[in-house]
């Protein structure tokens, strides 16, 4: 005798899996984007914007009569802040807060078994949770990038916005930074999703990744290629200052940087999807 569920639930197939994927992404997004869970990542996303806006306002207030601040100078400041603060700390910790919790959070709240008992392939679950995390982090930090970018027009005045964006390099630069932001979320997201799934205590690998990315300027060129920062830095449209004692390496060409990050993220996601098939639920003490 067939149970009622088997009458109305379609047979397993790509159409059903696509529907499951959409549903899980929606459920996860609703959980990630509401409530206190989002607060740390939101603060990390808003802080650089506040800083750039404050700087813009102070510069504008302190302008000497007759001074005309240049948008190009402001773009350089944005590039510095973007690389040293937004990418290095805000996106890193924001992604850690969001992606580590995708599986580890469910283990800590002892609710992962609800997902595992759903008639869903675990690989679909990994992909859905990753997409939900990516959408959350991507939207948050795209907000940071766009709002931070807008703040650079405060000193020169927003009448510069139109010409710089439409007739100058503004739109191209902004689009590049938004692209880098999504790539960063993709790369760090894949790493942290896998770390949150594979490690009972994810802080150890997280601290290692942070230290590795932190010493990136001082690494020899060969080892630099093993850090996400190297590829993201290579994509930056505006050059930024490097520490005095750092070892200089050739930036990776754009196709290598983008392709490398995409391939790296896919490989890490593949590992997570392969590993989850054997994952056991152990609600030990956390």
């Amino acid at each position: 005798m067939l149970a009622e569920s088997e009458v109305t639930l379609a047979s397993p197939g790509w159409r059903l899996r696509a529907r499951q994927l959409t549903a899980i992404v929606r459920i996860e997004l609703r959980q990630r984007l509401t409530g206190l869970r989002i607060l740390p990542a939101l603060l990390l996303a808003l802080a650089p914007v506040g800083l750039l806006m404050l700087a813009g306002i102070l510069i504008r207030i302190n302008l000497a009569p007759g001074d005309t601040p240049s948008v190009a100078e402001a773009v350089k400041v944005f590039a510095e802040v973007y690389h040293t603060l937004v990418l290095r700390f805000c996106v890193f910790f924001g992604c850690a807060a969001i992606f580590l919790m995708l599986f580890r959070g469910d283990v800590m709240s002892r609710s992962l078994h609800y997902w595992f008992m759903s008639p869903v392939r675990r690989e679909v679950l990994v992909l859905a949770k990753f997409l939900a995390g990516l959408a959350t982090a991507g939207l948050l930090f795209t907000g940071t990038t766009v709002l931070g970018w807008l703040a650079i027009y405060i000193p020169a005045g927003f009448d510069q916005l139109g010409p710089h964006m439409l007739h100058g390099p503004g739109l191209r630069l902004l689009a590049t930074y938004v692209g880098i932001t999504w790539l960063a979320c993709l790369g760090y997201g894949a790493v942290f999703l896998a770390v949150g799934q594979l490690f009972r205590n994810p802080i150890l690998p997280t601290a290692f990744v942070l230290a590795w990315e932190g010493i990136h300027p001082f690494l020899p060129p060969l080892l630099k290629k093993l850090s996400v920062t190297h590829y993201l830095g290579s994509l930056g449209p505006v050059p930024v200052e490097v520490p005095l004692i750092s070892l200089v390496a050739e930036p990776a060409p754009v196709p290598v940087a983008v392709g490398g990050l995409l391939l790296f993220s896919l490989a890490v996601l593949g590992l997570a999807a392969w590993r989850i098939r054997r994952m056991e639920i152990d609600y030990g003490s956390d």
Binding site: P40, L51, V77, L85, A97, P202, L210
Partner: peptide, 28 residues
Amino acid sequence: RWRPVAQLFLLGMLTVPTGFARAVNEIL
């Protein structure tokens, strides 16, 4: 309440302000 979250917070509190301080000193 959760140890890994508290650990992540601690790591963030000891590193993120350094980045902010550098950026603030740089641009202000």
